[in-house]
Design a protein around this nucleic acid. Structure first.
Lengths: 335, 335
DNA sequence: TGCCGCAATGTTAGCGGTAACGTTTTCGGA
DNA sequence: TCCGAAAACGTTACCGCTAACATTGCGGCA
């Protein structure tokens, strides 16, 4: 009993219509210059007429390359990663790769699960948005011998390629900027507390300690970040440390939420309290007052990740490397 | 010359180690109860030890089902769609499907390209976030005979399943709410002007006309929506219609941007100008004053889409249907 | 004329799974 | 003890495409 053919148009159908073998059709699609002009035109016509859509699964199975790459981000709703995604997507699409996206919900266990899933899908490479993974994820990636880019933060010990920025230095820089602006009782407010946030916190502490200032005004929570949470955290901080004159929020969402809370309390920003955020999202440049923040080169990180990944995919040898994409302090009205 | 095997562990490797045929191993993975206890345990052990990861491409090629579904959204950075995505993802994952996401950048041509791409990947179904497609996309979808869910807005003529809300009715409702609150010189400000925004605009006009009010205070642009744009549009409107007493912004980003612009101009909201947005994003409940908006059931739309899609994937017949998920007006401080 | 080399195309043998059907084993009941 | 059906497992033939090698045809040159 012959297996039911899916009914889809296949290479064979094209080949029969044109009167060549299916290898020639396949070749025509992959290396057009290796097929004669006349045959090529007739094949192209047949593809058009029959509405042929190549079956990537079959192609991937046969060639061992799927021309797809997995991009794992912590959260889709967080606009921080949408810029990275755009950069990655653009760079990889140019090179003929399709990006398959997954979101880990900030969980390395979920990341592990997704790595497994995408390996099953036969992706040719990974772009991860962290340098922290489970042991099993490490083993999976090592065994698969695929190019991997770890993005966002830097690490001393990259799996393969690492593109990001020094989160701790950025935290320190914004701390120093606040100190330079004359603030002395500077608070830190952080949510989610993933590795990157911890680094920013450490940088903030570095700056304050170096200036001989107290680092006690630190309010953190494992809850996910949101505008409202920014307001709640700020309220709690104002209660505990009424003398606080500036707050560095670990991200822009919290900073904006804190700003709204100040408005609600008729607290003048920056007159009575200065605010600073992190990432440089659109909103920081739209609020009143505009928000001081650390602008992170998310788009550039994505593009660079794509560029390096493509090099590896096209044969460059595996040579672990780190790429510091820097950051920029944007001093705005809120400080 | 034998073809270079990818080096990956395959069913065959498991089978050899256990001393059974690979069909038995395959069966053990798909229908465990059809394999004897002892063999099953030994197979499971071998899978564990050898770190076997099934090759989905091969499975899909052979069975004709890939257990994956494409979800196409206009924009990843727009949080409106991340809620839909979450709903879809959750519902489909439960049923064993993997969601592959693509973003169209609000272009139906790009949507067409993505449909083509994902058909090549052999997805088993589509979730689209519009009811507007190119002719070619229509043909592709019809020919593929796959279940398709069109989401967000409603249509009289669904391709297959349609889950969304009546955008025009929602626009009318917010218009009526503003009128009921006593506003009479109500403006509309819109960006991007995709189909949904046009519907909201039409609804707003319906409400104003029904109340005998002027619909001239309408400022639109094809530019993509953003906070800053909200401010710019509001400025332009205040210049043209200084007597305006309320503005319905086609989405929350514009409304928030407009609010920030009011703060910049020291214009009291709602005292001097009332503002309303659309979608019910987090920010509307965080700003000061909080923003009146239309809360759209995005999560529910995603979940319902997933539910209906799974039914179809599991054999329910194709029977075009529309599902109105409704909306809710949230009157807040800004009106 | 005969031989060489290259361009254009074809043949073969898989890639790693699964559907369909075939065979063997097991076991209860007549 | 023997029979027959179900449970357990195996064989075969693909799914649609491509790598590697084989073949054909033709022009150019000695």
């Amino acid at each position: 009993m012959p297996r039911r053919s899916s009914g889809r148009v296949t290479l064979q159908d094209i080949a029969e219509r044109v009167g060549v073998s299916k290898v020639t059709v396949s070749r025509c699609l992959r290396e057009p210059q290796r097929v004669s002009e006349t045959v090529r035109l007739r094949i192209e016509e047949a593809i058009e007429v029959l509405n042929y859509i190549p079956n990537r699964q079959a192609g991937a199975l046969s060639s061992g390359r799927s021309l797809s790459v997995a991009l794992l981000v912590p959260s889709i709703s967080n606009s921080v990663f949408s810029e990275v995604q755009r950069g990655v997507d653009e760079g990889l699409r140019e090179a003929g790769y399709q990006v398959l996206m997954g979101h880990t919900g900030y969980s390395i266990l979920e990341e592990e699960r997704l790595i497994d899933t995408f390996l099953a899908y036969g992706v040719d490479g990974f772009v991860l948005s962290s340098t922290r993974h489970t042991d099993y994820a490490h083993r999976l990636l090592n065994r698969a011998r695929l190019p991997v880019v770890e993005t966002m933060e830097l690490t001393d010990n990259p799996l393969d390629i690492n593109v990001g920025l020094d989160q701790r230095a950025a935290g320190r820089a914004i701390g120093e900027a606040l100190i330079a602006a004359g603030y002395r009782r500077i608070g830190f407010c952080g949510a989610r507390l993933d590795y990157r946030v911890q680094q920013r916190l450490a940088g903030w502490e570095d700056a304050l300690k170096a200036a001989g200032l107290s680092t006690q005004r630190c309010q953190t929570t494992p809850r996910p970040s949101s505008y409202r949470l920014g307001g709640e955290l700020l309220s709690a901080m104002l209660e505990r440390w009424p003398d606080m004159d500036a707050v560095f929020c670990c991200n822009d969402d919290l900073a904006a939420g804190a700003l709204f809370e100040c408005q609600r309390r008729r607290l003048d920003v920056p007159g009575q309290l200065a605010l600073a955020g992190f990432n440089g999202l659109d909103i920081t440049d739209a609020t009143w007052p505009t928000l001081t923040t650390v602008i992170t080169p998310r788009r550039a990180i994505g593009e660079q990740a794509a560029r390096l990944l493509v090099e590896r995919l096209q044969g460059a040898p595996c040579d672990p490397s780190c790429h510091d994409m820097g950051f920029e302090i944007a001093l705005r009205q809120s400080t």
